[in-house]
Design a protein around this nucleic acid. Structure first.
Lengths: 218, 218
DNA sequence: ACCACTGACGCAAAGATTTCGCGTTAAGGT
DNA sequence: ACCTTAACGCGAAATCTTTGCGTCAGTGGT
């Protein structure tokens, strides 16, 4: 990961309240922040397995029943934390053209999402998510980034595809391969790749670039 | 659902051994079949929530420790059952042309996967799947169906796209929308749909057809 | 056909997690 | 400042999960 996603433990100052916003005031916000931080720390120390509600609660300085009442179970709590960490940090870089912008973004997106940590967060986000709200948030994050890319290109006078089409052609295949085809995040059913690694450094960089070229005419 | 996926409780005669095939002989096979059937029955009776390992074990006529030892936890068991139910029943129908074949298949695929039951099974399959083996099996099922479509069209002399490209352009967007964009399985970023429901009956039928047309030239 | 070997199961106790009722605290509004 | 009520802490009860040990049944060899 190069920096699109949150890395450090708790960089933000204010709680976000991704779940129930019924009473987002002082104490509830403190508890949520404390529990989220406990989860992040314990994941770093003991891994996602070996994580239990009583353990998280103890680290956070609350009682287990508080966690159960707010989040229901460990899965939903992990889902909340995962979504928070899958949120992009800033706007995608500007490389002068839609092809370069989108290519670089897709490359980075694939690399981060396909990493062991990224895949774990994606699966956590999906797993404890009855109504699909957290998964929708993840998709909204990516769509927002792509919308910025397209809007920027349109401002340059370039002809740009629809956002929906861009999500279908570039983002969806990346996520599909990560989730359903472990170990196949590279390779695309087209011509042989360039001599060896055209621009990107990672393994699936070529794949990401080729998805972007499938979207853009020319 | 019209019949691509398994519907009834236990139609097959022999156990399949989707997990450990260490000792697939008589008793182990009976236990696996019995536990799987118990899960299917209880899901039908009490829903996926309110399902516990002791409950399943009691229905299956085994002790909870047996379930824990074979599957680890409820999630992995549900993942196994989900993959079994996501397996296609037979070969896709023949409509005379790749466009018609693929369109009809995609339409049916979307309808089944986007249903409440289909989505639940997909999420279960992904959730309890440490190594991604079950998810890979789901993808392999779909890929096999598409491979049949493409091979049949090639036999007719049609020019056909690569399997990988077909998966990227048609299957991936369908699964992405189901997982990450609840309530947005229809609509595509192109021209307005036909007058009103061209051929398919379901809501997302037009979307599936348009994905196929994005893949096929002409 | 018989026998030894080994993986899988049942049973039951120990341990951990999850649920629930009730009193208390503190946020939000008037 | 006072009232209302969502959210929390505490502790007991219920439920689930793990583990050790004896037994049973498939598997392969003779």
């Amino acid at each position: 990961m190069t920096g699109r996603m949150k890395e450090g433990s708790g960089s933000g100052t204010a709680a976000k309240g991704s779940r129930k916003a019924a009473r987002p005031g002082g104490r509830s916000a403190r508890v949520q922040e404390s529990v989220h931080r406990a989860v992040r720390e314990l994941i770093g120390e003991r891994g996602r397995d070996g994580l239990t509600v009583p353990l998280v609660a103890a680290r956070a300085g609350v009682t287990p029943s508080t966690v159960y009442r707010r989040w229901g179970d460990l899965q939903e709590l992990l889902s909340d934390v995962a979504v928070e960490r899958l949120r992009p940090e800033g706007a995608p870089e500007d490389h002068g053209s839609l092809r370069a912008d989108f290519g670089a973004w897709a490359e980075q997106f694939l690399e981060e999402m396909a990493s062991a940590a990224g895949r774990a967060y994606i699966r956590d986000a999906l797993a404890g998510d009855p109504d699909g709200g957290n998964a929708g948030q993840c998709s909204a994050y990516a769509a927002e980034q792509v919308r910025i890319l397209l809007g920027r290109a349109a401002g340059r006078g370039e002809t740009v595809p629809e956002l929906e089409e861009a999500m279908d052609v570039v983002v969806a295949p990346i996520m599909y391969r990560i989730l359903f085809r472990p170990g196949a995040e590279t390779a695309v059913g087209e011509e042989q790749a360039g001599p060896a690694g055209a621009a990107g450094s990672g393994a699936g960089a070529d794949y990401a670039r080729r998805l972007v070229e499938r979207l853009l005419p020319g």
